[in-house]
Structure formats: structure tokens, C-alpha cells
């Protein structure tokens, strides 16, 4: 097995990993760093359960070669809550508006929503739906997820 070493910022920490060069980012996060938030729902970029942010942009970590995160900043759902455990407005809103059911898509869904709100604090429904269109969910029919994102946007506006 050919190996590579990559260093990057993971949820605020400078980290380094030596992993097989064939590994994707998702596998590195889950197996090397033992992070459980990003999930493999399909492994081929079709469901979005593995969504993380790289330099602030949402990507499918399951088809992102780990070699390419060198020097970049990776944020997973684990990096969202404050150090004191305070939930991010998105996390709060998902719990309050039933944006979560089985929860398997939730980590990825919230990360897609985070990428959107960071770029566009006041999105309309269509923009939210576009941003979440790569995150499949079988439980919710998406309605309460969209509502959760809208509520989170409101919370974040009130704060700032």
C-alpha cells in the first residue's frame, strides 16, 4: 500500500495523517481521526451524507482524495458546536423544527446549510432547496429541514 502524509486544519486543530494514498477524505476522517459525523450513504457522491466543508465550501468527502486536503481547512459537524457545548443555531433549529428524524443525513445536511448561510445569510426558499439538493433524506420530505434552515438564518441574524 502506497502511503501519503497530509497536514491540514480539522475543526480548528492542525492535524497530520499518514494514510494509504487511495483513501478519500471521508475514510480518513472516520477511520484515522475516528470522527463519526460524516457518513457513507452511497460512497459515490450521490447522497451527501458525507458532506464536509473544505475552505468553507461543501463537498462530498467520499469522493474527495485525501491527498488534496493538504494545507486546507476541513470542517465537519463535530466542529460546529461551541467549545462549551453551545449548539450552533442550525443544530438548535433542526431539533426544534423536526429537521431530524433518523438523523443519518443530518450531519451532511447541516453542513450544506452551513456553507449556504456563511455565504448568504438571508437565502430564499429556492436557494435553500438548491443548496440542499445534494443531500438526500428519506424521512422528512425536506419541508421541516428547509424550515429549520430558515429558522437558523433568523436566529443568526438576530444575534449579529
Amino acid at each position: 500500500m502506497k502511503k501519503i502524509t497530509v497536514s491540514f486544519t480539522l475543526n480548528g486543530d492542525q492535524v497530520e495523517a499518514e494514510v494509504p494514498s487511495t483513501w478519500n477524505l471521508l475514510r480518513t476522517l472516520r477511520e484515522y481521526f475516528e470522527i463519526t459525523g460524516p457518513k457513507e450513504g452511497c460512497g459515490v457522491g450521490e447522497c451527501g451524507a458525507c458532506t464536509v466543508l473544505i475552505d468553507g465550501k461543501a463537498v462530498n468527502s467520499c469522493i474527495y482524495p485525501v491527498a488534496e486536503v493538504e494545507g486546507k481547512t476541513v470542517t465537519t459537524i463535530e466542529g460546529l458546536a461551541g467549545e462549551d457545548g453551545t449548539l450552533h443555531p442550525l443544530q438548535k433549529a433542526f431539533l426544534e423544527n423536526n429537521g431530524v428524524q433518523c438523523g443519518f443525513c443530518t450531519s451532511g445536511m447541516i453542513m450544506s446549510a452551513k456553507a449556504l448561510l456563511d455565504e448568504n445569510p438571508d437565502p430564499d426558499e429556492d436557494e435553500i432547496r438548491t443548496s440542499l439538493s445534494g443531500n438526500l433524506c428519506r424521512c422528512t420530505g425536506y419541508v421541516q429541514i428547509v424550515e429549520s434552515v430558515q429558522k437558523a438564518a433568523e436566529m443568526m441574524k438576530d444575534k449579529s
Binding site: 472516520r30 463519526t36 457513507e40 465537519t76 459537524i77 449548539l87 431539533l95 426544534e96 438523523g103 450531519s107
Partner: peptide, 19 residues
């Protein structure tokens, strides 16, 4: 009532068979 009991699901800590 909010689903606060399932906070693990929004923080990535919920352990599924996959994990």
C-alpha cells in the same frame, strides 16, 4: 416539544451500525 433528547444526531455523535 423539540427533539432535544436526540441532540447526538445534530452533533455527529449518534452511533449507528456504520460507526
Amino acid at each position: 416539544i423539540p427533539r432535544t433528547a436526540e441532540v447526538d444526531k445534530v452533533t455527529g455523535r449518534a452511533i449507528y451500525i456504520n460507526d
